[in-house]
Design a protein around this nucleic acid. Structure first.
Length: 498
RNA sequence: GGCGCUAUCGUCUAGGGGUUAGGACGUCAGAUUCUCAAUCUGAAAACCCGGGUUCGAUUCCCGGUAGCGCUACCA
């Protein structure tokens, strides 16, 4: 039997900013497939209609292209298994869900979210594993029909064996045994008719002829569900390999609260895509000869899955910075460097965003450097003293920054929204907007003499602003005295729920 | 809590039944440089703990511990 062509995929969910973790998993899938002359597919998992956005999807595609992780099939390039966007494949999943229903491998569940939530609470407080209790499993066919007739919303859940265990084979970890009684009767098709990850993933991986699934470690526990679905459908199981998760310095799963995670951040900071990719290749993987600097091409040529180590690697910005420096010094000519800088910021598109902000504030072009500096910088060097120069006292500055860092996560990153957020903070703290804004000008622009704050924040992007605000907060100290805590608490109670 | 995964310098890692446990980032010291970077040299720094198996375990096995992940009509 001829060995089928290796086909791998990365399947990001377009919610929020493009994540380094996506690039990380994509890199390994890319290298694994390319090394063996196979194909690498990109699929958009946008079945969560509440959270998925087209902007996010576009940003993911752009970021992966920026990194040079090109896909053989997927959005914008198409392919024999189009569409590659799950929201456009809805009918497919419904058909397959019905197929499971008919075969008796799945059942309709009419339970309300409220009941499920109560049930889980009860289970938890009774010290039991939370999981569907099987209520609708025992519904008579007649009752199902009558509930259907009265248009009651329902989901489709998969049936799961009550006893025994499932052994999933992991390419790196070997057999992993998981008892069936720890596996929930997973919802496959939501009430809105959209599939959950589990169904969509299995159906698409099969139809798209994926041979090897390299994905994050967080999926290990649901692998039995997937294996069972393959069995229910009678499809061959792709090889599974769970990659270790990228970590924050405190070892928790990489998160934007503790580490910049957006690829847009790394781009805006001026990391070279080659260097970022190179650094990701150093996470849990190493060249056979120990060489630390390598291109994507070189990584493809020498890639061996066996060289993936299983401990979760801490993403270290310092070492990434060193590597990036090496790339700038060693791999770019002067001309190329100039070109890079232009592509990065000295291009018409970016400059035109700045021009309206700076032109009215300068008398000679030479003033431009100062005003434009924040837009050509990563983390700005400031002093605690500069942050304290305004009318707010130390605790107020600290609280204001802390509050902004919290609230900025839930606003749309547009200048009007940013304005409202900061006005809201001034109001909540009972200080003049002008006084509140002063330390923000310093934190974001490096100086109280600056282009308008809200515009600057929008242009710089959420991630860079977060990093600068966090830097400023670190300088003045987090609000941690009992007094400041009380203050924060009072303000929070005053706020509308987020 | 339950289940699962993981465990080598602070961090990324190499290695592997017998090694002075290797490299890199960072740190410190020195050299060099008009400053700063860069560069060079050197130093400190690790096999989680306890039992086995073995002539010998950091390496293999078991247990513990710790970290992490999952425990949704999110992925």
């Amino acid at each position: 039997m001829p060995k089928p062509t290796v086909r791998t995929r990365v399947a990001p969910s377009p919610t929020g900013d493009p994540h380094v973790g996506t690039a990380y998993v994509a890199l390994f899938n890319y290298c694994f497939a390319r090394k063996q002359g196979g194909q690498f597919i990109l699929r958009i998992e946008d079945t969560d209609t509440a959270r998925s956005t087209r902007e996010s999807e576009a940003a993911i595609l752009r970021s992966l292209r920026w990194l040079g992780l090109t896909w053989d099939e997927g959005p914008e390039v198409d392919g024999p298994h189009a569409p590659y966007r799950q929201s456009e494949r809805g009918n497919l999943y419904r058909e397959y869900a019905n197929q499971l229903l008919e075969a008796g491998h799945a059942f309709r569940c009419f339970c309300t979210p409220e009941r499920l939530s109560k049930m889980r609470d009860a289970q938890r407080s009774a010290g039991q594993r939370p999981g569907y209790d099987g209520l609708c499993l025992r519904l008579s066919p007649a009752e199902v029909q009558s509930r259907l007739a009265s248009n009651e919303p329902f989901v489709i859940r998969m049936k799961v064996p009550e006893e025994g265990s499932c052994t999933v084979e992991d390419l790196l970890r070997g057999p992993i045994e998981i008892a069936w009684n720890t596996v929930d009767m997973q919802v496959l098709l939501k009430a809105d008719g959209m599939p959950t990850y589990h169904l969509a993933n299995v159906v698409d991986d099969h139809l798209m002829e994926i041979t090897h699934i390299l994905r994050g470690e967080e999926w290990i526990n649901s692998a039995p569900k997937h294996k069972l679905l393959y069995e229910y459908f009678g499809w061959p199981m792709p090889a599974l390999c769970h990659l270790p998760l990228l970590r924050n310095p405190d070892k928790s799963k990489l998160s934007k609260r503790k580490n910049p995670t957006s690829l847009l951040f790394y781009e805006r900071m001026g990391y070279l895509p080659e260097a970022l990719l190179n650094y990701l290749g150093l996470m849990a993987w190493s060249m056979p000869d120990g060489e630390e600097k390598f291109s994507l091409q070189e990584m493809v040529e020498r890639f061996e899955l066996e060289r993936v180590s299983l401990g979760g690697p801490v993403f270290d910005l310092t070492k990434l910075g060193w590597l990036n420096g090496r790339w700038i010094r060693e791999n770019v000519t002067d001309n190329q460097f100039a070109e890079r800088v232009c592509r990065w910021a000295l291009n018409e598109n970016y400059l035109m965003k700045l021009v309206p902000l700076v032109r009215s504030r300068i008398s000679v072009l030479g003033d431009l450097g100062f005003l434009a500096a924040p837009f050509l910088s990563g983390i700005i060097t400031i002093t605690p003293g500069q942050l304290m120069e305004g009318n707010l006292d130390h605790d107020a500055v600290s609280v204001a920054l802390d509050l902004a860092l919290m609230r900025m996560e839930s606003v749309e990153w547009k200048k009007l929204e940013i304005e409202n957020m900061l006005k809201g903070i001034a109001e909540a703290m009972g200080v003049k907007l002008r006084d509140l804004l002063r330390p923000f000008f310093v934190a974001i622009s490096g100086s109280p003499v600056s282009v308008p704050l809200y515009d600057a924040m929008e242009i710089l992007g959420r991630d860079l602003c977060r990093a600068r605000l966090r830097h400023a907060l670190a300088l003045v100290g987090k609000p941690d005295s009992p007094e400041k805590r009380r203050w924060l608490k009072a303000i929070r109670e005053d706020e509308p729920a987020q």
